[in-house]
Amino acid sequence: MTQRDKTWLFITLAIMMALTLYPAFGSFSGISGLRDILLFALFAVSLDLFWGRTGILSFGHATFFGAGAYGMAVMTIHLAPGAAWSSLAGLAFGVGLAGVIALAVGYFVIFGGVRGAYFTIVTLALTLIAQQIAIGWSSVTGGDAGLIGVPPLTLGIPITGKLFYYVVVGLLFAVVLALWAGLRGQRGLVLRAIEDDERKAQTLGYNTPLHLLAVFVLSGLIAGLAGALYVTGTGFVAPDMIALLLSTEVIMWVAVGGRGSLIGAVVGTMIVWRLQQEVSTLSASAWPLFIGAFFLAMVFFFPDGLPAAAQKLWARGKGMKEGRTA
């Protein structure tokens, strides 16, 4: 392991330890709120996997989060209400639905050679279409009102309260560590080569569309898992969970934390949610305007994320201190 790997692992384990200890000091409402934020962080990790490792921005990732959420809700409310196995079936259906959508869209778009801004536009349109389906198919999705009454997660026993919180923390960091370990080998190097120059990677014999599709589908599956678990905690699903605003927000979470680091997506999500709480206390309607202004500020002043900016400031301050000493 390199020094950078050791630093990453130390930071990740430190954050995990802090989150694990939080229930000993936090209130019930605080634990529930942080649990939901961590599920959104899992969603952000899914985008960071694709955008951070391939350099291709997906502006429609809320489609997969919403597919997982609606899949879980439809299964547990309409198809298997009250069944002991409904939670497992809902998870499988929600995650599977997100994966199928990612596979279908990704196959035609990625193998069709769509890249860059055109890929972003296609995925943006995907979110708009998915939201219209969620609103228009009211007999199944509940329309604008959504679906209320999603039962808590049950895996033999009800997974609620602190137990649900610990399940989310464990799952989040299991995914982060598994992705980090998997991307440290040849697959990570191939994705880095594709991000640098896809055509050159093809000349070296790599099937770059297949690699991109595999990462895109895995990203969609993780996002679907986050959405499916989220609705079991909140008890409802609404079109907002598949809307363009959520797709914009998740990009912000990843950008703030620094794309490509995985754990940065977790940190970025927590930072932006904290800002949202502070802004919403002043004016609930001001948040969409604030996130737009904040996004522009990030693009111009902190394109590599806040951690990278802090690291540069630290290095500059250290250099100035050493210069004075000399």
Rank of each mutant, 00 (worst) to 15 (best):
Val215Gln: 03
Phe290Pro: 07
Leu204Arg: 03
Gly185Trp: 05
Arg184Lys: 13
Phe236Ser: 13
Val272Tyr: 12
Met270His: 01
Gly185His: 06
Ala284Pro: 06
Ser285Arg: 14
Thr203Trp: 04
Gly182His: 08
Val237Glu: 02
Arg184Pro: 07
Arg187His: 13
Val250Cys: 02
Thr208Val: 14
Pro239Ala: 15
Phe290Lys: 02
Asp197Met: 06
Arg192Ala: 14
Phe300Gln: 07
Val266Asn: 12
Gly292Glu: 04
Ile291Thr: 07
Gly264Arg: 05
Val267Tyr: 07
Leu296Ile: 14
Ala297Lys: 00
Val299Ser: 03
Phe290Thr: 08
Val217Phe: 08
Gly260Glu: 01
Thr234Asn: 07
Val267Lys: 00
Val215Tyr: 01
Thr232Met: 03
Gly224Trp: 09
Gly257Ile: 05
Phe294Pro: 13
Leu296Gln: 05
Leu218Asn: 06
Leu183Gly: 01
Thr281Arg: 13
Gly185Ala: 08
Leu189Ala: 13
Ala286Pro: 00
Arg259Val: 04
Ala226Trp: 05
Arg259Pro: 00
Leu210Ser: 14
Arg184Met: 10
Glu278Lys: 06
Ile271Gly: 02
Phe302Cys: 13
Leu245Met: 13
Leu289Gln: 05
Trp273Ile: 12
Leu246Pro: 07
Asp196Gln: 14
Leu191Gln: 12
Leu225Asp: 10
Leu296Ser: 09
Leu244Ile: 09
Thr281Gly: 13
Leu296Asp: 04
Leu210Thr: 13
Val254Ile: 07
Asp196His: 08
Ser280Gln: 11
Leu229Tyr: 01
Asp196Lys: 11
Glu198Lys: 05
Leu210Ile: 04
Gly182Val: 11
Ala243Gly: 09
Leu262Gly: 10
His211Lys: 11
His211Asp: 08
Arg184His: 09
Leu246Phe: 12
Val250Gln: 02
Ile271Val: 15
Leu275Lys: 06
Gly292Leu: 00
Gly227Gln: 04
Phe300Asn: 05
Gly235Ile: 03
Thr248Ala: 10
Ile222Asn: 10
Thr281Ser: 11
Thr208Phe: 06
Thr248Val: 09
Pro209Lys: 06
Phe290Trp: 01
Ala243Tyr: 05
Val217Gln: 11
Ser261Pro: 15
Arg199Ile: 09
Phe216Tyr: 13
Val279His: 00
